[in-house]
């Protein structure tokens, strides 16, 4: 329970970040959604032993965080809670793949370790990109951007409703859950019996709420259509933003910048 409560709190904080007013925040959300997708594609399209090619990609999250004035530690803390599934699956790479790919003096590093490290770096980059997208854009704007990029309106509306009522309902279930905890001693009273009636009640209340919301919508002239109220423009600065970053990503993807830099340095100081 605590984890979801924290997550909801983080959700509020992340959403508040989107209220910032930097040049990045002001860009049309579509530009930011597109470039995030290009970034993720460029990152994950590297082959699995690629580690050094991935490192230069950190330029994107770092620059975005700085330009948009996001709190780096907050983002970092969220990224570091890596998806457990990734770690659980990735950790088998060193077990199954023991061919030595890299010799540094007496130390042989197997392909498995390299690909495991590569998986972790990918994870940090891709998850970080998603957080940054929300932090500089906001959930609502991301949904609206996706809608204008072709997502069906029914689904966009669904996302907005869902997001709106997460806050209301998690508070409600948090209260119910606390009330049960206070009246149960240890594990007693926390079994499936009390659970199902509690969740069942929550479900019925949720259902009634939906009926009231529908009434409130009808009362304000809802006829099944949602009308867009605000428009933003995909202008020159958006095009510049998308072009500049995509060019960089594709360059970084095709050229191992780390390798180039490294040979330059090791070549200079043999």
């Amino acid at each position: 329970m605590a984890s979801i409560q924290n997550a909801v709190l983080d959700l509020k904080n992340l959403d508040l970040l989107a209220n910032g007013n930097s040049a990045i925040h002001r860009l049309d959300a579509r530009a930011k959604v597109l470039i995030t997708l290009v970034f993720i594609l460029c990152v994950v399209s590297n082959n699995r032993y690629e580690l050094t090619t991935l490192l230069p990609f950190f330029i994107f999250p770092v620059v975005m965080i700085s330009l948009a004035d996001l709190p780096p530690l907050f983002i970092l803390r969220k990224i570091i809670l890596l998806c457990p599934f990734v770690v659980a699956v990735g950790i088998f790479n060193p077990v199954f793949d023991q061919v030595i790919l890299l010799q540094i003096g007496p130390l042989g590093i197997s392909g498995g370790w390299i690909s495991f490290a590569s998986i972790l770096v990918r994870s940090i980059l891709t998850v970080g990109a998603a957080f940054i997208l929300v932090g500089v854009t906001g959930f609502t704007a991301v949904c609206q951007a996706l809608e204008r990029l072709g997502m069906p309106q029914v689904f966009a509306v669904q996302l907005l409703f869902l997001y709106r009522y997460i806050f209301v309902l998690t508070e409600e279930s948090g209260r119910a859950s606390r009330a049960r905890e206070l009246r149960s001693c240890g594990k007693k009273g926390q079994g499936i019996g009390s659970y199902s009636s509690m969740v069942g009640h929550l479900l019925l209340r949720t259902w009634q709420r939906a009926e009231r919301i529908h009434m409130a919508m009808l009362a304000r002239g809802f006829t099944g259509e949602f009308h867009a109220s605000r428009q933003s423009r995909f202008g020159a600065s958006e095009i510049r933003f998308v072009l500049a970053w995509s060019t960089l990503f594709i360059f970084l993807r095709l050229q191992n910048v780390s390798q180039l830099l490294g040979s330059l340095i090791t070549g200079l100081f043999p």
């Binding site: 869902l162 709106r164 209301v168 259902w207 709420r209």
Partner: peptide
């Protein structure tokens, strides 16, 4: 169209319901 708000709040309900646990014997 009454299903529109219902789908939304039931989605949120899934999050909310996941805050409530029960102990497995």
């Amino acid at each position: 169209d009454s299903k529109i708000p219902l789908m939304g709040v039931l989605g949120a309900f899934i999050f909310a319901a996941q805050m409530i646990n029960f102990s497995i014997p």
